[in-house]
Design a protein around this nucleic acid. Structure first.
Ligand code: FES
Ligand code: FES
Lengths: 151, 151
DNA sequence: CACAATTCCTATCGAATCGATGTAAATTAT
DNA sequence: ATAATTTACATCGATTCGATAGGAATTGTG
């Protein structure tokens, strides 16, 4: 039960953008170097974030990315949906017969637990915004965002 | 973010054992047929459950499995630990330098969220016991446990 | 003892997922 | 024109996951 690298990379990128003035967009190249993340991979993620409307992009010479929303409006639930897909812990109740153990999902023994954990996770994810994340950070890390030692 | 098939299979098996009288142990073969789960795979899982002390096994001719603890004593957290390993959402703070973004984990921007979600998940998992799961089941399914149509 | 039913150990396989890389086209300021 | 960029798509290698297979060890039964 780990979060994917996509999720972390997206989060780090968003946090970086959050702490930058929105004068000029920041290129994927710069982002990847500042965060020491693989360039191509990061741009894939940024494209996904753009499609989801969390980020705006400017193409061409002085192009790059910046936040499309205010930091208070971007929740970790949004990021999760982009990078991890649906929050569906179910495996049962999804078979070709609509079940796995021979029960319908209504009768499923595990469904009550699944519903509970899904709601809990959703609420927790939604409760964290980009803004809150920085404030709640363990040692009250302010801007500037995480820096990188090597290159 | 799905639970593995291992987790569900383990849960179904445990729930079945829970609803059986502890007179004679139930073989892996019977268990797999009643739940229509792959035989070999299920036995792997049962072995793991045994190693974790959730299940006792009897070898030989009339051998099989039965619960090693009372249904109130077996939580979904226990099952989770057996089938899904550690509940460590962290990727960062685990690099060769003990980090990923150049920060130590103490300074990690995401750690507060990670700690939160880890605790929340742990508590939720621990709050569900085998016993409670049946009672809390959507439609108050009692014993007998889930049955199977085909074969 | 011979046999059958079982747990248990380990190896492997195929498919899917994941992180990452590569190629090339479209866009845009200089 | 050129350089820097986003964007789309294809692919690759490693790992994980669900599942299967063979065989050894154990134990009741005849
Ligand atoms: S559909 Fe049978 S246990 Fe969920
Ligand atoms: S170690 Fe840098 S963000 Fe977690």
């Amino acid at each position: 039960m780990k979060f994917s690298a996509r999720f972390e990379y997206a989060l780090l990128a968003l946090l970086y953008l959050k702490c930058e003035p929105d004068e000029s967009p920041i290129s994927g190249r710069v982002l990847s170097e500042k965060l020491s993340l693989p360039y191509r991979f990061l741009e894939q993620i940024l494209t996904d974030l753009k499609k989801a409307g969390l980020v705006r992009s400017v193409r061409g010479y002085h192009g790059g990315y910046r936040l499309a929303l205010e930091p208070e409006e971007i929740s970790l639930y949004d990021v999760f949906r982009v990078t991890e897909g649906k929050l569906e812990p179910y495996n049962c109740g999804q078979g070709e017969n609509g079940d796995r153990c021979g029960q319908s999902y209504n009768m499923c023994v595990i469904s009550s637990f699944y519903d509970d954990i899904k709601d809990t996770m959703t609420n927790l994810l939604k409760s964290y915004t980009l803004d809150k994340l920085c404030q709640a950070s363990r040692n009250m890390v302010k801007s500037p965002p995480p820096r990188v030692a090597n290159i």
